[in-house]
């Protein structure tokens, strides 16, 4: 899947909230190759501010983060009128049903379990960015 940057993805921004450096590296690679602008943040505490600063088109959010977990961040985002429209893709290594249900209750836009398929993540972000 040799994807080239298309017009559709041009100038679209993705913010990755994740603390595992190797996963960030891999996500950045696929997204940049697809034409997205990628920002990243590693600490749960900085996540919401970072969203405000970058106003991304899509947020990729991990669940287990230092200092503040993904659910808390999601809750804050969705309760902030200015940010609540930004679609959120939640990526998590905790694959339990309960977590998915929690996320859906907090109005997450998409939910994918780690380890993920690059293709799946990419098409999901493509889909979310077009909304």
């Amino acid at each position: 899947m040799a994807t080239q940057p298309s017009n559709a993805t041009l100038n679209k921004t993705v913010l990755i909230v994740e603390d595992e450096l190797h996963i960030i590296e891999s996500l950045r690679f696929i997204l940049q190759r697809a034409g997205y602008l990628v920002h990243e943040v590693h600490d749960g505490n900085d996540a919401v501010n970072s969203v405000r600063a970058h106003i991304p088109d899509v947020i990729v959010l991990d669940l287990m983060l230092p200092n503040k977990n993904g659910f808390e961040i999601l809750k804050e985002l969705k309760s902030d009128l200015a940010l609540s429209n930004t679609p959120v893709l939640m990526l998590t290594a905790k694959g339990q049903q309960q977590d998915r249900a929690n996320a859906e209750q907090l109005k997450v836009d998409a939910f994918i379990t780690k380890p993920f398929s690059n293709q799946e993540v990419l098409s999901c972000i493509d889909h979310l960015s077009k909304r």
């Binding site: 190797h22 996963i23 696929i30 190759r33 290594a93 905790k94 380890p115 993920f116 690059n118 293709q119």
Partner: peptide, 23 residues
């Protein structure tokens, strides 16, 4: 499960990149 999935994620994702891309 969580601890195992994290390294697995990097391994899978990067292996996919290596497999799919020639350039």
């Amino acid at each position: 499960s969580h601890e195992l999935r994290t390294p697995m994620t990097s391994i899978r994702s990067m292996a996919e990149i290596l497999l799919d891309s020639n350039n």
